[in-house]
Amino acid sequence: MRTPVRDRFAAALPPVRLWLVGALVWGTLMATVLGLSLYGMERLDGSHTPALFGLYFSGGAIGWFLALPFIGFFSFRRRPETRFAAAFLLLSCGTFATTALLFALQYRMFYAQWHAPFGTVIWAFQFVFTSASAVYQFTALGSRHYFPFGVALLVAASLWLARRNR
C-alpha cells in the first residue's frame, strides 16, 4: 500500500521545537566534537580556533535544520532500519555538506581580493575553482575532526530519530 505524497509532505514537517532546539543541540555537539579533536591533537590554542568552532557549530545547526524534513519525508511509515538509514545518511550528508559550503564561502571571501571583477568570465572560473578547492580541502583536512566522536553521536542521533519517526 503506497502512501499518498500529500501525507509524506505533511509528515516531513517536524515539530518546531524539535527543529530549532535540535539544530542548536546538534550544532553544539558538532562544535564539541571539533573541540575534542583539537584537544587530542594539542591544537586548541590556534588563532583560528574560535572561527572553527563557529564554522562547525553553524554547519551542524544548519545541517540539522535542512536534513530533518528530508528524514521525515523519506522515513514516513517505513521499517526501523530504513528510518535509521535515512537519518544516518541525510544527517551526515547535511552536516558535512553545510559545513563544507560555509568553509568554501569563507575561503572564497579571503581569496576574492585577488580575483577578477565580478561578472567576468575569469571571475566565474575563479569562483568555481576556488570553491571546489575549498570543498576538497575541507574534505581532506576538516572531515577528520568528526572521527570518532562525531560518528558515535551520529549513530545515537539516527537511532533516536528512527525511534521518534514511527
Rank of each mutant, 00 (worst) to 15 (best):
R163T: 13
T82V: 10
D7H: 14
A132G: 07
P4H: 06
D7N: 15
F57D: 09
S92K: 11
A116E: 00
I71S: 08
G46S: 10
M41L: 13
T120A: 05
L20M: 15
A10V: 15
G94V: 01
F129S: 08
F53E: 03
I122Y: 08
R164L: 10
S92C: 11
T95Y: 03
F129Y: 15
L90I: 15
D7L: 15
Y107G: 00
D45M: 02
L102F: 09
M30P: 06
E42Y: 01
R79Q: 14
S92E: 09
L68R: 15
Y146V: 03
W19N: 07
S133P: 00
Q126E: 03
T3Q: 11
S143Y: 09
G94H: 02
A134K: 03
F129R: 12
D45T: 04
H145E: 01
A67N: 10
R79F: 14
T98N: 11
T98L: 12
F74H: 12
F125S: 05
R83G: 00
G142V: 02
F84D: 12
F65H: 06
L141F: 09
L161M: 10
F96I: 12
R77Q: 13
I122S: 12
E42G: 01
I62V: 15
L66W: 07
I62F: 11
W160K: 01
L90R: 12
C93F: 11
A116D: 06
L36E: 00
G150F: 04
A152H: 04
Q137W: 12
H48C: 11
F53Y: 15
V128L: 08
A157P: 11
F125I: 02
A11D: 06
M109V: 01
L29S: 08
Q126C: 00
T99Y: 08
T3A: 12
W114D: 00
A86G: 11
W123Y: 10
L68G: 13
L159E: 05
L29N: 06
S75N: 02
V16G: 11
A97L: 15
L154P: 01
F73K: 14
M109S: 10
A51S: 15
T32G: 14
T130R: 05
L52N: 08
V151C: 00
V16H: 13
L153P: 01
Y136F: 15
A124N: 06
A11T: 06
H115Q: 12
P80L: 14
A12L: 06
F88T: 00
A104C: 11
G27S: 04
L55D: 02
V5Y: 12
V21L: 15
A85M: 09
